[in-house]
Structure formats: structure tokens, C-alpha cells
Design a protein around this nucleic acid. Structure first.
Lengths: 192, 192
DNA sequence: GGGCAAAGCTACAGTACTGTAGCTTTCATG
DNA sequence: CATGAAAGCTACAGTACTGTAGCTTTGCCC
């Protein structure tokens, strides 16, 4: 009885898990959330399905784990850059946030691409998930700016700036976006 | 040999087609783009699959047809409200656009919900599709405002306002959003 | 009230993916 | 080297959805 396939190189569980989650991210970016399933991930890792099942219960668990990891890492990228109430120089604080965020997107494009894609993606659960993340920022912005709607609008522009940075990095360079966000912020603050 | 199911009431092809497309919209809104498939649509229409196949070649054709219809209707809702180059009162023109758009969203919530959801949805094809629609507005705004980045930002805020109108109609009423958009527009124009 | 065009149905073969039980290989360690 | 824990594999049964061929019912029209 001939072997159907050679044994894949062995890998420590933690490492394998990371690899599989990396693959999920690639799949989302390349073919959309809908393309993520146990079989596809296994194939891309050049491994059989039971290997994936050793780490994740099913497709949902896999996607959830991916979101968990990326959400945590994304928040870590922005930690210490979110303006706090009681700030003495709002413009400077937001400038720092804009700068940090634009760098974060540029430094982990796969991650942010997936986040933007999942934002309004196939399953309502994951949609809500990203919304929760955004709501957190709206709350923090609102606390600082004393204006919920303004906070929403600011986040919308910030979000869009990140997307532009990803999609057209040449047309929309870091400095251009940053300058534009600063200008916008100043203009907005002037109206309230 | 017992019938498995009663015959569904007959329907003229054009009418049936519309019904099926309505169902697609509901499915997208309730369970996401990923939940749309021939079988689900047939079941919800209380009809067998061959009936659906009489109107659409496959799942992609079905989704494409839905997007076609909704895109066309959405654009129709906004026709005559998009500012044109050479305007003498930009603020008034944009005010009219904001007003029209907010009304459009409120009047066809299923449609716009689907558009927002599909915006970054499962398959890259449909993602690109909505992006094309947005690009069109960016182009038109840019032509009027002489500033591409500003056009992007304005669309982002407008888009977000529509989402807020849908998601929290009570907190974000028509007048509040409209006023805020007007203010934002004035502030932005002042900076360029 | 009989005929017939077409809307609708059944049934079947096919594909893709899911989960799991149980066997096989690998390789770190003595 | 030999051994055993565990990483990986095969194989199979099961589910959901796809498309299509060919039969059945409906209801309009004369």
C-alpha cells in the first residue's frame, strides 16, 4: 500500500497554531472570509485536516481565534497612543494617535487588511465583533471630546485613512494622511 | 405515491425574479452574504431549487443580480442630488446631497444595510464592486472640491452617517446628522 | 370543459467539506 | 540504537449544497 503523501515536517503545537492562524489571515486577505475553512487551511499548510482539528474545534473556532489574536495585537499596536480625558494638549495627543495608527497599518498590512475586510463580513457575529472594537474607540474619543457624533465621524475618517494607506500607499503616503488628519481635527475642534 | 409538497402558487417570471431578489436582500441583512445560496433562497421562497435555477445560473449570478438591482436603485435615489462642478453655492448643494442621502437610507433600510454589509464582504469581487460605486462619488466630489483626499474623507463621514442612521435611528436622527454634516463641511472648506 | 404552454416538482448523480477513529512515522532521549 | 510520546496520516461515514433531466400540475384561453 503506497503512501499517498509524505509526512509533513513536525512542528511544536504552539508554532503550528501560529502558522495556521497566519494562513487564516492570508486567506481572508486573498479570497475573503468566506474562503476560510478547515480543509483550505490544512491544504495551504500542506498538512491533513486532523492536524488542524488538533488545534481548533471547527471553522468558527478557527476564525474566532484569528480575530482574537489580531484584535489583541492591533490594540497592542495602539496602546499608549489613545488620548485620555484631562489632556492638556488635545491636538498633540491626537496627532500622536494618528501617527501611531498610520504606522501600525503600514507595519502589519495583512492584519489590518483582514480587520477592514472582516469589518462588515459574512457572519453577523464577526461583524459585531469589529463593531465592538470600534465602539471602544468611539467611547474613548467621546469622553475626551464631549461629543459622541464627532467621535464617530473622527473614527470614520481615521478608519478610512488607514484603508487608503493600505490600498494606495503611493498616492496616500504617511505624511499626507497625517497632515490631513491634523488639519481636519483642528477644523472640527473649531466648530464645537 | 404521495406528494412530498404542495405546488407553490404560480407566479409570472418577472414577479418571481423580484421576489427571489428580495429574499436575497433579506438573507444578506439577517445572516450575512455567506448565507446566500440557491437552496436557502428556494427554501425561503417556499419553492424548489429548479425554480431558482430558472432565473439565475448559480449563486454568483444571483448575488450579482441582486447587487445590480440595488446599485441601480441606490443610484436612482441619489440622482440629481450630486453636486456638479461649476456650482455657485457648494454648501447648499452638499446640504441637499446630505439630506437626500439620509432620507434614502431611511427609506430603503434593507437595501442600504446590504450595501454596507457587502462593502467589505466575503468575496473580493463584490468588495471591488462596492468600491467602484464609492470611487465614483469620490471622483465627483473631487472634481467639485479640487481635493481627492478631502473627497475621500467626506465620503467616509457621509457613509458613516448613513450607517449610524440605520443602526441607531433614535440616537442619530435625521436632523442631528444633517446639521453635523453641514457643520463639518463648512469647517473643512474653511481649511482649504 | 378540454388543451396546452409553462410554472413547478421529484429524483438522482456529483462535489466539497466536516468530524472522528484508529493506525503510522518521527525524533528526542536514554 | 531502541523506544515511546506525540505529531501526522488514512479512511470512512455523514451533511449540505449543486445542477440537471424528465415528469406533473396549473390555470389561462378558446
Amino acid at each position: 500500500m503506497p503512501r499517498k503523501r509524505p509526512y509533513a515536517a513536525r512542528m511544536a503545537p504552539e508554532q503550528r497554531r501560529e502558522q495556521l492562524l497566519d494562513i487564516v489571515l492570508e486567506l481572508i486577505g486573498s479570497y475573503g472570509v468566506g474562503s476560510v475553512n478547515i480543509d483550505a487551511v490544512a491544504r495551504r499548510a500542506d498538512v491533513t485536516r486532523p492536524v488542524v482539528y488538533n488545534h481548533f474545534a471547527d471553522r468558527d473556532d478557527l476564525l474566532r481565534a484569528s480575530l482574537d489574536r489580531e484584535e489583541q495585537r492591533a490594540l497592542a499596536q495602539l496602546a499608549d497612543a489613545v488620548p485620555q480625558p484631562g489632556s492638556t494638549d488635545l491636538a498633540a495627543d491626537f496627532h500622536h494617535l494618528f501617527d501611531t495608527y498610520l504606522h501600525a497599518v503600514a507595519e502589519a498590512p495583512l492584519r489590518w487588511r483582514a480587520i477592514f475586510l472582516v469589518a462588515d463580513s459574512s457572519t453577523p457575529e464577526f461583524h459585531r465583533r469589529v463593531e465592538r472594537g470600534r465602539a471602544r474607540f468611539v467611547r474613548e474619543f467621546g469622553a475626551v471630546l464631549h461629543d459622541t457624533l464627532l467621535a464617530h465621524q473622527l473614527l470614520a475618517v481615521l478608519w478610512e485613512s488607514g484603508r487608503l494607506r493600505l490600498i494606495s500607499p503611493d498616492e496616500f503616503g504617511h505624511d499626507r494622511l497625517l497632515h490631513s488628519l491634523d488639519t481636519l481635527f483642528t477644523a472640527l475642534k473649531g466648530t464645537r
